[in-house]
Design a protein around this nucleic acid. Structure first.
Length: 489
RNA sequence: GGCGGCGUAGCCAAGUGGCUAAGGCAGUGGUCUGCAAAACCAUUAUUCAGCGGUUCAAAUCCGCUCGCCGCCUCCA
């Protein structure tokens, strides 16, 4: 079996194999550091975190580069508004981004280069483009000549005539063609500057990725990723720059993920309909967000809503509950007891890894992969529920092994890594802290109810139960006559 | 206007021509219980926006219609 990946360049799913045996080189466009990141950015990092983890699980070595854009128009503007330097502003939000990544439970990339730390490489590539006739300088600006690059538009399926017909491009007198884009921008007064053969200035947006990917991964590498909105112009321009300068193919596979939407509209800074990662993590555990994100295929739009998050949380609880119940079972059982697990169920359990891998091999279909896990959870619950008082050794071994396997697979998405029993308990304690009733009051009510029940005063007993339930306390009458309680989660 | 995508049960969502259209949430029924709750189990689409075509066979391929969204300007 091989991993298949949907390649934006071909518009098809293709069997994937790295250029260098067992070593995958991956470059992902990171953030422009000028503000806190929203859930859309979170999805991007989550998706590639999952992809990298899965490729590693499949035995590949993965070199994963994710850059920071720490110099651009938005950063300059924001820094001026805040009366600070672009450097301070960018560093502040890079730090915030790293905190967010940590909270989300993302593994760090192999390297996280910044544009400003690679200015010499950027200048070198621009010079190469000028020398080869793909770029020209006008009064300290340098532009890429799109007409010179025959394949311009191949990634996004556009051609220059159609784009010009769109007429949404602001006409810049200096450009030879309105579609030409800046490689280097002459600085205006007060802006940060770097020296260059064309005078003091700063790099354009697209060139940094060409320079950094070349520096860390080479002229040609396996996978380049980002959001769908980067296909044009960003990635189109990267291809033009990189291929024009190196004369070699740039990237074998382009992966683009879908957006996060709210009420079916793209979440974005410009629309103002965004929620920051921080705001979400105040309300929901990171694992719930991960579960929510991976419940939908990465190329499909993901519509965020409170209901969807609540559903995700309930689903995640179901998984943890199953694991916690299994963890409570003894490790060893009765070797003479006949097994409760039926043949069909056993084969469903045993095929989990294969089915999971098959789903993930198919363009990282995490939604389907999670579905398989849920299916096995149902089977495990059935077996556990039908266990006799002294369960069979084989049943217990099967349940424990399956739980371990589920946690291992879910770990590829960064899910189910908490101790299941502790997860349930923590959750209850957390809720308990928010309640308007304390333990003593609960126990006192339960003992009142016990008396009522002994007197067969069901009305009073039920009344007490309702009072407790109003305080989010659920009680359970045990077989031995005692009553246990727990916080409703 | 150009290019691309989507439309599957009450909601979310998988489904790369052919076994009973995954799975989750909600709902309903049941096991348990004095009654409950929790947990668990069962159940919920003769049908995949609509129409037509290709095929022995279509949610899946092709065409048209309707609706929604994205990119073409900074954007994950």
């Amino acid at each position: 079996m091989t991993v298949s990946i949907y390649n934006t360049k071909s518009g098809k799913k293709e069997p994937f194999s790295p250029l260098e045996k067992d070593h995958i080189k991956l470059y992902v466009c990171g953030i422009t550091a000028y503000d806190y990141c929203h859930i859309g950015h979170a999805r991007s990092t989550l998706v590639f975190d999952m992809i990298v983890r899965y490729l590693r699980y499949r035995g590949f070595k993965v070199t994963y580069i994710r850059n920071f854009t720490d110099i651009d128009d938005k950063i300059i503007k924001r820094a001026q508004e805040q009366h600070t330097t672009t450097e301070e502003l960018a560093n502040r939000f890079i730090k915030a981004f790293r905190e967010d990544m940590e909270s989300l439970g993302n593994e760090p990339p192999t390297l996280e280069p910044k544009a400003t730390e690679n200015i010499p490489e950027i200048i070198a590539i621009i010079q190469e483009l000028i020398t080869k006739g793909f770029a020209y300088e006008v009064e300290g600006d340098v532009y890429f000549k799109v007409n010179r690059f025959a394949n311009y538009g191949s990634l996004s399926g556009r051609n220059l005539e159609d784009m010009l017909a769109g007429a949404r491009i602001s006409i810049n007198e200096q450009k030879q063609n309105p579609m030409d884009f800046a490689l280097w921008k002459a600085s205006k007064p007060g802006e940060p500057v770097w020296g260059s053969p064309w005078g003091a200035g700063r790099p354009g947006w697209h060139i940094e990725c060409s320079a950094m990917s070349r520096k860390f991964l080479g002229d040609t590498f396996d996978i380049h990723g980002g959001g769908k909105d980067l296909i044009f112009p960003h990635h189109e321009n990267e291809i033009a720059q990189s291929e024009a300068s190196s004369g070699k193919p740039f990237v074998a596979t382009w992966i683009h993920h879908g957006f996060v939407t709210i009420k079916d509209e793209k979440m974005s800074k410009s629309l103002g309909n965004f929620l920051t990662i921080r705001e979400i993590l105040e309300k929901y555990p990171a694992e719930v967000l991960r579960f929510f994100v991976f419940s939908t295929h990465y190329r499909t739009p993901l519509d965020f809503s409170e209901t969807a998050m609540k559903d995700a949380e309930t689903g995640l609880d179901r998984l943890y509950t199953c694991l916690a119940e299994i963890a409570k079972l003894p490790v060893h059982g009765d070797p003479n007891q006949s097994p409760a697990a039926g043949k069909k169920n056993v084969s469903k359990i045993n095929s989990l890894v294969d089915r999971f891998v098959k789903a993930m091999d198919n363009d990282f279909n995490s939604a389907q992969a999670l579905g398989h896990i849920f299916e096995v959870v149902k089977v495990l619950n059935t077996i556990r529920q039908s266990l006799p008082a002294s369960p069979a050794e084989s049943d217990l071994a099967l349940l424990h092994a399956s739980a371990k396997s589920i946690r291992e697979l879910a770990g590829i998405m960064g899910l189910l890594q908490q101790e299941p029993v502790a997860y349930i308990k923590d959750k209850q304690e957390k809720t308990m802290g928010l309640l308007d009733i304390d333990q003593a009051a609960i126990e006192s009510l339960i003992s009142d109810r016990k008396i009522a029940r002994e007197q067969k005063n069901w009305t009073r007993a039920d009344e007490i139960r309702d009072i407790l339930l109003n305080h989010q306390i659920e009680i359970k009458d045990e077989a031995d006559g005692s009553t246990s309680w727990q916080v409703k989660i």
